[in-house]
């Protein structure tokens, strides 16, 4: 299972990195989203693959998972959304100003 998770995060990273290196703004947005899946996953699995209960502090519930990485990732997901939205706005504005969706619009390529 550990190997499966590791390879999954690796593939997400590789796809994300390849996409953010593309010249098209839309690909960069997609790549960044994949990359944030990978990063969120990495932080989340910092709590290890523990077979246990959700982190609820309820009597009788034992062997819970680590709540800290979860709290970290929860806000990271939401902020990731904010970043995606902002990046889309930048892409749209760049298109509207320069007429192209090249990430280096107007600059040396």
């Amino acid at each position: 299972m550990e190997l499966l998770v590791s390879v999954a995060l690796g593939v997400l990273t590789a796809s994300g990195v390849y996409l953010i290196l593309r010249p098209t703004t839309f690909s960069v947005v997609l790549g960044l989203t994949l990359l944030s899946y990978a990063v969120n996953g990495l932080i989340f699995f910092g709590g290890r693959l523990k077979a246990g209960a959700p982190p609820l502090s309820v009597p009788g519930l034992a062997n819970q998972t680590d709540p800290l990485p979860q709290a970290l990732v929860l806000t990271a997901i939401v902020i990731g959304f904010g970043m995606t939205a902002y990046l889309l706005a930048v892409a749209l504005k760049a298109k509207s100003e320069s007429g192209t969706d090249h990430v280096d619009a107007g600059e040396t390529r």
Binding site: L9, G10, A14, A38
Partner: peptide, 11 residues
């Protein structure tokens, strides 16, 4: 570059 990054993250 992407492959290297992916392998690194996997490891």
């Amino acid at each position: 570059l992407a492959t290297a990054a992916g392998v690194g993250v996997t490891a």
